[in-house]
């Protein structure tokens, strides 16, 4: 599964993996802003940023080909808008849309592939992201595994009874079965939610999440943010000055 691979990657041991989640999040934010606001010479800048990101992927010990492929999951979405721009006679805008969305996805992919999700969420919390939003994300991520496993069991059961999920789209009589399966999955999720709530109460939960101490933001993290800032903004300034 997609999230299993990212989860495995995020538990690596490179220098980038060891940086504080806040440092990496800040670097990604700087990158996104620098990329999104680039007007002139964005193709050259995109190429330059692509090289930088690819180098970061290699330095973090992630498989380059696989990471580049995974970042392309956003392309079907932007391709629609790029096609519209192209049809409207704006090929540069179309290219810009594709390049910017792909590079943004790659940057975010690097962030989540070098930071275990719990650490990332804790970092975001300390940067001021609303706690409840993060709690929901945390639970969603935790139970994604449980729910998807149940979905797989149901799929296997459907196949054992000689149904096939794959043919559902082309067979209206099977819509009912698929809808029923979704309903059961929802009911099970609801059951889990109740069970989890009971288990939380049983261990003294009173409405506020208290967690263990997070690690500190150290000098190496500060140096990392500075280096990222200099590299990303420097690259943009250099490209804009050069072209």
């Amino acid at each position: 599964m997609h999230h299993v691979v990212l989860d495995r990657w995020s538990r690596g041991a490179s220098a980038l993996h060891r940086r504080d989640a806040r440092a990496k999040t800040l670097a990604v934010l700087v990158f996104l802003i620098a990329l999104a606001t680039a007007q002139r010479s964005f193709l050259a800048l995109s190429a330059c940023y692509f090289v930088i990101l690819a180098a970061v992927v290699v330095a973090a010990g992630l498989p380059l080909g696989s990471a580049l492929k995974r970042a392309s999951v956003v392309l079907p979405f932007t391709a629609v808008f790029a096609a519209i721009s192209l049809a409207a006679g704006e090929p540069m805008r179309a290219a810009s849309l594709i390049a910017k969305s792909y590079l943004s996805a790659l940057a975010v992919l690097i962030l989540v592939s070098t930071t275990p999700l719990p650490e990332l969420l804790r970092g975001l919390e300390r940067m001021g992201v609303p706690r409840y939003l993060l709690m929901v994300t945390q639970f969603l991520y935790r139970y994604l595994f449980v729910i998807s496993e149940e979905a797989q069991h149901m799929r296997a059961a459907a196949q054992a009874k000689s149904g096939s999920i794959r043919r559902v789209l082309f067979n209206r009589s099977k819509f009912g079965a698929a809808a029923g399966a979704l309903g059961v999955l929802f009911a099970r999720s609801y059951g889990h939610a109740e069970g989890i709530h009971q288990a939380m109460l049983a261990r003294g939960f009173q409405g506020t999440f208290r967690t263990l101490a997070a690690r500190a933001f150290n000098k190496a993290d500060a140096a990392f943010v500075m280096a990222a800032l200099v590299l990303l903004l420097g690259a943009r300034a250099a490209v804009e000055a050069w072209i």
Binding site: L121, R142, H192, R210, L212
Partner: peptide, 26 residues
């Protein structure tokens, strides 16, 4: 101390240590 039948419902924190520390923190 109540140990539920479905451990998945009982282990909701992101890591083992954080999960075990959930009760004492509360």
């Amino acid at each position: 101390g109540l140990v539920f039948q479905d451990s998945d419902n009982q282990l909701f924190m992101p890591s083992v240590l954080e999960d075990v520390a959930f009760g004492p923190l509360n």
